[in-house]
C-alpha cells in the first residue's frame, strides 16, 4: 500500500495502527526507508523512550547501504546488554552470543568465511568489562572486524550500575556518592591495542556517524567506533542530565572536534564528568590484517 492512498496523509501523519495492509498483516507494512533493512514486524523495539541505540543502528544500516555491502555478506554479532538487542531488529545474518563473547564468535565467523563483512555491535559493559580481554586481543591481531561500542557510561539493562566506563565522580546505583574509579579511555585503549581505525561520535552526530560507518565498513583490519549514547532512564536520571533529547544535546554541547584541536594542546580523549569530550576520527591506518599474515603462514607450512 502507499501512504498517498490514506486520507490521513493529507494532514502529514499516517497511522499504521488504523491502516493495516489489505490482508490485515501489519508485518507486511513497509513504510520507512529503513524498513527493508529492518525486521519491521519486531518493531517497536524494546529500547526505552529516549534511548540512542536505535539512532546508532540506523546509522549502521545507512553505512551498509552506502558502502555497498551485499545483503548476504552482512553479519552482526552481539553479546548481552541493551545494545546487543540489535540482532533482533536488523535484517542481516546475526548471532546473539553469551556475555562478552561477541568478538570471539565474530572472529570465528570471519575466519570461516573471510568474504563476510562482520560487525560486532555491543555495549561498553559487554565489550570492556566482561569481554575486555577479547577486545584487546582481537585488536592486537588486527582481526577483520568492525566493533561498534554503544557507550552509555553504565550497565543500563540491569539497573544502572557503575561499570568500566562510568566517569569519575558520576553517580550510579552502585556508586551513590560518586564513582571512585577512573574510566577506560576507549579510543586510546583501542589504538594502543593495535586497532587500525578508531573513531568516536555522539548520537546527535548522526550524519558523521553515517559517514564513519560507510568509511569503516569498506576498510580492513580492526575498526572501532565508539558511540556516546544517552541513557535517560539510568545514567541520565541519576546524574540529573534529563531526558534523552536533553542528554544528547548535553553531550553535543560538550564535544570538541579532534580536527579543531591543535596538536600542541593537552586535550586528551579521556571522558571527565561535565568536561569537554573530544570526538572525531583518531586512527586511520591500512595495516596487514590477521588473515593476510595467517595466509602467509599457511603457504609457508604447505611448502
Amino acid at each position: 500500500m502507499t501512504d498517498e492512498e490514506t486520507p490521513a496523509s493529507a494532514g502529514g501523519t499516517i497511522s499504521a495502527e488504523v491502516t493495516p495492509a489489505p490482508n490485515g498483516d501489519l508485518a507486511a507494512l513497509e513504510l520507512h526507508p529503513y524498513d527493508h533493512l529492518l525486521r519491521s514486524e519486531a518493531l517497536p523495539h524494546i529500547w526505552c523512550q529516549g534511548c540512542g541505540i536505535g539512532t546508532a543502528l540506523g546509522a549502521l544500516l545507512h553505512g551498509f547501504e552506502h558502502a555497498s555491502v551485499p545483503v548476504e555478506k552482512r553479519v552482526i554479532v552481539s553479546g548481552i546488554g541493551c545494545s546487543s538487542r540489535v540482532v533482533y531488529y536488523a535484517k542481516t545474518d546475526a548471532y546473539h552470543t553469551t556475555h562478552g563473547r561477541a568478538i570471539p564468535f565474530a572472529t570465528g565467523v570471519k575466519l570461516t568465511n573471510p568474504t563476510l563483512n562482520v560487525v560486532v555491535f555491543a555495549g561498553d559493559g559487554d565489550l570492556f568489562a566482561i569481554g575486555g580481554n577479547h577486545f584487546m586481543h582481537a585488536a592486537r591481531r588486527n582481526m577483520d572486524l568492525l566493533v561498534v561500542c554503544i557507550n552509555n557510561f553504565n550497565y543500563g539493562m540491569t539497573g544502572g550500575q557503575g561499570g568500566p566506563t562510568t566517569p569519575e565522580g558520576a553517580l550510579s546505583t552502585t556508586t551513590p556518592y560518586g564513582n571512585a574509579e577512573r574510566p577506560f579511555n576507549l579510543p586510546e585503549f583501542a589504538a594502543a591495542a593495535g586497532a587500525s581505525y578508531v573513531a568516536r561520535w555522539t548520537t546527535l552526530d548522526v550524519r558523521r556517524l553515517q559517514a564513519t560507518f560507510t568509511e569503516a565498513l569498506a576498510r580492513h583490519g580492526f575498526r572501532f567506533v565508539e558511540v556516546l549514547a544517552p541513557c535517560p532512564v539510568s545514567f541520565g536520571k541519576t546524574n540529573k542530565i534529563g531526558t534523552g533529547a536533553e542528554e544528547m544535546e548535553y553531550y553535543y554541547a560538550l564535544e570538541i572536534l579532534k580536527s579543531r584541536i591543535e596538536s600542541t594542546s593537552h586535550v586528551g580523549t579521556e571522558i571527565v564528568l561535565h568536561r569537554p569530550i573530544v570526538v572525531g576520527k583518531f586512527v586511520d591506518l591500512e595495516r596487514e590484517t590477521f588473515l593476510d599474515r595467517y595466509a602467509r603462514v599457511v603457504a609457508k607450512a604447505k611448502e
Binding site: 517497536p44 541505540i53 540506523g58 548520537t203 550524519r207
Partner: peptide, 8 residues
C-alpha cells in the same frame, strides 16, 4: 528520519 531511534 536519521535521528529517530524508533524508525517512526
Amino acid at each position: 528520519e536519521d535521528v529517530c531511534p524508533e524508525y517512526a
